[in-house]
Design a binder for these strands. Structure first.
Lengths: 238, 238
DNA sequence: AATTGTTATTGATCCAGATCAAATAGTTCT
DNA sequence: AGAACTATTTGATCTGGATCAATAACAATT
């Protein structure tokens, strides 16, 4: 399975030495290296591929941090309609809530290990632990800028620009964290990409084909894309 | 001018006694009531209607907190295309950045007073002041859930649903903070609403007319909407 | 290797919302 | 008040991407 492979690749490279640059497993670093007492307020859980970690509208009792694997978070509009908020990586926190209910559903992509914090205990702990408070603030701020970028994508870009930006973002991110950034592997399905970009699978597929035809990318397999021309792709992505 | 009126209405009611429920002027409360030393790291500035507070891609040296008036933040895609991220109120922080540059443009709606923090000083100050750190974390988390909700709106809702949700959100918000929630005043232009919802002015106008025709709202003026039927509007808004 | 189920691609048609265009209402200035 | 602008509404047409439909590629199972 593709995503299992991706996870393997990811985990091997996800150990950080400094603990200040992603990707890294926030919990693992804190627990093993810095804060032994950290384990008092958290426990570990495993999820298999496609397992729901929680559903939108569940009572939000916990905050999660990924120690291994990928998680997809999405909003259910009503029957059938889904908007994927994001694809998450080791080190990412998730579990934000509104009025005591989770704000989205969280689902494992491949095998996932998470660190579970009881919301209440974490809150108390934050009061006594500035490192954690600042880390949470940094991560949340970072996520906020990503979310704001996505408003521009969903509100104003056309299908060609959305896909180009998606591919560029993935490539950039992989490069930044020291992975292979070309060809890029896409662990998620076309349906996931469509739900992430606010398009349909057919449109995503057609846009990939257009990039292939205009020789900007080479489609090694449906989940492996080689970028021939970064400049052209970047120009398309706005 | 409509928005001046709105600001007046807003400011009169924006004084909080408890300082834990919005709207309130975060800076004002902190400065006047709780943290005299707070003023050491901040200064106050005024902006007139339509004045740019900062532009996307400016070096992000400051963080702002609104003490009076409203601010609109928006992303410039390229010439002409604009995506409005949000309309901000007293107490709201803004100035999030990525790679040292602001992530959006900020513009005053009506007259605005802000509290300006030098990013660097604020960062140092946070280390010593847990109240501020937690407040920033709370606000940022809250903004994040709003941003995530907006992804669903922009990615999956149709025009009718977008406008209905927009009106419901405004009404809910006003109710929560103790303002008149019916009729609701819309200080922003149709163009602003369109740029916020990822639509065109024509479509926004047509959707308002549809709500009027189906007797769900009464259009008192282009900026004053009376909601006849909350249930129906809520059903439309998903 | 053949069968079954899942995921992706490609083609044909349709429609929601964009665009273009014109009329109307509201605001500001002299 | 009247002129000059600006913002909003309404109408007519066009189009990008959705929808419907069929095929092709790929994986998993026996």
């Amino acid at each position: 399975m593709q995503s299992a492979q991706l996870n393997k690749e990811f985990n091997e490279k996800s150990r950080c030495s400094e603990c200040n640059i992603r990707p890294y497993s926030f919990c693992r670093c804190l627990q093993e290296e810095k804060l032994k007492e950290f384990s008092n307020i958290s426990s570990e859980k495993k999820f298999q591929n496609k397992a729901n970690i929680f559903l939108q509208q569940d009572d939000a009792k916990n905050i999660y941090n990924i120690t291994e694997g990928n998680v997809k978070i999405y909003q259910l509009i009503d029957d059938g309609r889904i908007q994927i908020i994001g694809f998450l990586y080791p080190g990412d926190f998730f579990g934000s809530y509104k009025n005591g209910k989770y704000n989205y559903c969280a689902e494992a992509i491949g095998q996932v290990r998470v660190c579970v914090f009881e919301q209440k205990k974490l809150d108390e702990y934050i009061d006594k632990n500035m490192v954690l408070a600042k880390e949470l603030l940094n991560q949340t701020s970072h996520e906020l800028t990503l979310a704001q970028d996505r408003m521009g994508v969903l509100g104003k870009l056309d299908a060609t620009e959305r896909l180009a930006k998606f591919l560029m973002n993935i490539s950039d991110q992989r490069k930044r964290i020291g992975w292979q950034n070309n060809p890029i592997s896409l662990p998620m399905t076309r349906q996931d990409i469509a739900d992430y970009l606010g398009l349909t699978i057919e449109t995503v597929s057609r846009e990939v084909s257009k990039l292939k035809t205009s020789n900007i990318v080479k489609v090694l397999s449906s989940k492996q894309i080689y970028i021939n021309d970064f400049d052209k792709l970047s120009n398309l992505s706005k």
